[in-house]
Amino acid sequence: MKTPTKGPVFLRFLIVSLFVFYMLLPIVATYLFSLATRWDRSIMPEGYTWEAYQTAFNLSYFRITLKNSLILSIASCLVSFIIIVPTVYLTQINFRKFRPLLDLLMIIPFAIPTVVLALSYVRVYTFQPITRSPFLLIMATVVYTMPFMYRSVSNSVDAVDISVLTEASQSLGGDLWNTLTKVIMPNIYPGILSGMLLVFATVFADFTLAKLITGAHFKTFPMLLVEQTQIDGNVAAALSVISFTLAWGISMVLLWFSSKASKSKKAQPSDKAYIGK
């Protein structure tokens, strides 16, 4: 083994430091800006205050948009769960040959730009009461998040021997419902849970679908944030902090999860593409 020379070590340190600086700069700036009293004359804020957060909490739309976004995210998680978990299980048990087809079906939403998905919904579902409804928005977010919910669940399904578990359950007289809820799900819950957390975080951060499908009828948290960027910078920063801290928390839980799971269960980085963009 050659001992590494000083040059490359220094270069490595420089490259990685610049990367870390670039990655942290807008985040740190947002946190500081949300707390700053005045920050235009010096490199650091002149003082700190919670005022922006108080103003944010007192916005008439704060509670409504937060509630709407929470309802939307939770509903999407549930619908996603109901649609995907039984499908993956049943395909694996009864139609194993068709798993590649299912893989393909589930990746398709990756290829649909969110604006295109929104346009197609708005043009097809033009009748009451569905048109531009929160229901339609939930369906859109479920389609949009389907690839990573699926991958998360299917990795878990592949990691345990589903057919042995099913046979064991059936030989003890378990029907499909009991097998699925009492035997299969407890075995694949890490995948289900991490998939749902990722869906939650993604839907909570979504601006595009909500703006284009429901618009002002059903205002979400990111819509309030975008609106505030034009009105009050400090408040917008405070809302950014709230939204990012939530996403950050969920991310940490997910990472902790995947460090517990075996290697094969790890989510693919591509799952992170598109989030909130």
Binding site: S240, W248, G276
Partner: peptide, 19 residues
């Protein structure tokens, strides 16, 4: 760090750069 920063996107990111 790379994993977490992928969550900082969309409106918050744009506004971070405006700040």
């Amino acid at each position: 760090l790379s994993d977490v920063t992928t969550n900082f996107a969309g409106a918050p990111l744009a506004f971070g750069f405006i700040i």
